[in-house]
């Protein structure tokens, strides 16, 4: 187990190294710089700024300094926001994204699984159709449209929730719901098909013929097996929720990390680009690792330490 963990961590470091290198190359290859502005200042002033921020050093020196910064998690100051450290920016904005993301994941999983189970149990009945209509709508309506619809219904028409910003729990409901729509629908469909599959298995029939009630069979015997595909979807789900929160944060005026991530690229704010990229990468790589470990816990048939393909 420990050997397995070490190996995975080794892979994580290797991927990080590749991510940093590619980011650095793309960043430097993109035209423009952090000080480009409509109001060009005099060449002498620009030269002083470039010197002060180390843009005049040879490119390989800049690369190594970014690499060292990344692995010590000290990215230096932002170029656009004077005097703010990158770690400070991440520290201030990540809690917003985290709360939003966790809430969205919670909504997506709980409602998604529930809808999927209902659809499977009421197979080809009204409940099934209703759940699947909701799921198809959820997949096809993009989150920013959903955001506008939710804003209109709950904030403007019914006046029960605030339109935007992130002050109290009431403020978090609409953005989290909008962000959860697509994964929710996806989970519902995933859950339905795997549940249908499981319900037709022999051991379910055995359980039923033993005289166990429908409820016990469904929730105790079927659910545990049917939920496995959803667990494996958790990794990509975390990815899409965290990186996909940009548009939701923009619409709801939330000062989260998703918008820093995207805006830093248009600003050419090199240190913030590097900082947010590395931060997200670590987060995602670790969450994928955790999902793999959970997988092994839920399904004892899967032995994470054994060789792949030998399940």
């Amino acid at each position: 187990m420990i050997k397995y963990l070490l190996k995975r961590i080794g892979y994580i470091i290797l991927s990080l190294f590749l991510i940093i290198t590619v980011t650095f190359i793309l960043m430097k290859a993109a035209p423009g710089g952090p000080f480009a502005s409509e109001r060009a200042s005099t060449p002498a002033i620009e030269a002083q700024m470039n010197e002060a921020y180390g843009f005049n050093d040879p490119i390989h020196e800049q690369y190594f300094s970014y690499l060292i910064n990344a692995f010590t998690f000290d990215f230096g100051p932002s170029f656009k926001y004077v005097g703010q450290e990158v770690t400070e920016i991440i520290g201030r904005s990540f809690p917003y994204s985290l709360i939003l993301g966790l809430e969205a994941i919670f909504i997506a999983i709980s409602i998604g699984v529930l809808l999927g189970v209902i659809a499977a149990v009421k197979h080809n009945k009204f409940g099934d159709y209703l759940a699947m209509v909701i799921a198809v709508l959820g997949i096809s309506v993009p989150s920013f449209i959903m955001a506008a619809i939710l804003q209109y219904i709950f904030a403007i028409y019914l006046q029960v929730l605030p339109i935007a910003r992130f002050e109290s729990f009431a403020h978090t409901i609409l953005p989290a719901a909008a962000l959860a729509t697509t994964p929710l629908a996806f989970i519902a469909r995933l859950m339905r098909s795997s549940m249908l599959d499981v319900l037709n298995r022999d051991y379910i029939k055995t359980a039923k013929s033993k005289g166990l009630s429908e409820r016990v069979v469904t929730y105790k015997h079927a659910l545990r097996n049917a939920i496995l595909p959803v667990v494996s979807y958790l990794g990509p789900l975390v990815v899409s929720i965290l990186t996909g929160s940009f548009i939701i944060e923009k619409i709801f005026g939330i000062p989260g990390l998703g918008s820093e991530f995207v805006v830093s690229v248009t600003n050419r704010d090199y240190t913030v680009i590097m900082g947010t990229t590395v931060f997200f990468s670590v987060l995602l790589l670790v969450s994928i690792l955790i999902v793999d470990l959970i997988y092994g816990l839920i399904d004892p048939r899967i032995n994470v330490t054994s060789k792949e393909g030998n399940k």
């Binding site: 506008a148 804003q151 904030a155 403007i156 006046q159 605030p162 339109i163 935007a164 910003r165 944060e249 923009k250 619409i251 709801f252 005026g253 000062p255 918008s259």
Partner: peptide, 18 residues
């Protein structure tokens, strides 16, 4: 002073009296 990125959102907040 609220910092809101999205123009439509601030317009809606204005309409809503926020």
């Amino acid at each position: 002073m609220y910092m809101i990125d999205d123009e439509n959102t601030s317009l809606e907040m204005f309409n809503n009296g926020e």
